[in-house]
Design a protein around this nucleic acid. Sequence first.
DNA 1: CGCAGTCTTGAGTGAGTTCAATCCCTGTGG
DNA 2: CCACAGGGATTGAACTCACTCAAGACTGCG
Lengths: 231, 231
Amino acid sequence: MLHVNTRQAILPHPVTVHIGLKPVETVKSFVNFIAPGEDLGVSETSPRLYRVVDGCLAVYHLLADGRRQITDIIGPGRAIAQQPAHDGNRSIKALTYTEVEVLDPAANPALAAETALEALMRLTRHATLLGRMNAAEKVANGLLDLAEQFPRKLRQGRPVLTLYLTRSDLADWLGLTIETVSRTLNQFKRDGVIDYAHAEIVTLTRPERLKEIASGNNPTTSARSSKGKAA
Amino acid sequence: MLHVNTRQAILPHPVTVHIGLKPVETVKSFVNFIAPGEDLGVSETSPRLYRVVDGCLAVYHLLADGRRQITDIIGPGRAIAQQPAHDGNRSIKALTYTEVEVLDPAANPALAAETALEALMRLTRHATLLGRMNAAEKVANGLLDLAEQFPRKLRQGRPVLTLYLTRSDLADWLGLTIETVSRTLNQFKRDGVIDYAHAEIVTLTRPERLKEIASGNNPTTSARSSKGKAA
DNA sequence: CGCAGTCTTGAGTGAGTTCAATCCCTGTGG
DNA sequence: CCACAGGGATTGAACTCACTCAAGACTGCG
């Protein structure tokens, strides 16, 4: 139901790009531009490998009654595999104007394998976040992840990130409600841990403190962990 | 710290086993027996592919302070890939005496690919469970999963399952506390949805009701869903 | 300038946690 | 054969974190 302005362009190939630390050679790529809210590859017939050049993708899973869980957020440099058969209600959509490189997994087996492995590792860590962390820990971890994936120029030596996610996206990613996300972010702001004026540009004013909160070390809210009682 | 009685046996090969619906041919397999509590392949140097012949494995992830999240439970017929470098605190342990077939992923690329794909799909659904479901829905979904993976002979036409998980395992799998798991199971028992006497053998006395609860249709507890407000 | 979408903030509530006591079962040793 | 110990499971009572409901503020847009 949204403005569909997907354009395509043939690129010179092969192309070499960096994922993680290893340069990965790719072949037969072309480029797609996706508008915010638009879905990725819903009508594909063959498995596809996508790599984000610029922008932000959200992988999500829907329940019959409309509940949504975003299982991963994908930024520039990272890749994602999309199965043809719309694998089990899993979809991918763009959270901003996003440029993706479309690749053939058969022609890029190394990237395909690495992509699957990274997805699994990230999702494992995210499952732990969802099942075993409280709101502050969830939001702190989310912010640190996004700061790595969507870095802007440092401001007075502090990391700055572009926040493509709305409060609703953050909530569906972190397993919270929008109100709790809003309250937690504003609490962090009041505590001087982060700062933002325009809501889509966030500065980590005390990144080391944020890391402490993310790992459960919370001196102020003394020893309030959650369910998983430390052994 | 536990009794280590891991034995190995060379098997005739190739061997054909069924995973899902497709028969998958494997080569150069041998068999490992793992005792309950024992870890799987902690000291491996090369990537390994394991397939459970009999028993039950738990894939889990630990936080620095001891909190634990079990990300998957693996029963007979299912496979799992273990990376050499102890991938990011992810470990695998046996919940009962378990017989696994050890395979070389390079020699079984089809199984390796399918294994990764299945792991990702299951973990995606589990993330949704962890982030967006209430206790009753979590436990109902968990039971239905286990009933498929660990079936026993039907009792009066009803599915029966072997429950290898303790309350503590269930809690760490479903993102709850042992008390909530216990209360929910006993509530199901009181409602006549499930039945058990010996705690490791559970009968689904009303499987269709359990499926309703699992999918959020809860007429009795009328319309008490959770955070993810139905769109 | 008004509308719609997003975000914030407050007040009240409740699902699930924490804490704690008890029970149950099995294995062990006198 | 029975007493005791220990791990797991159950149950109750109290609490609390995050949710629900609701109102208001902010922003961009037609």
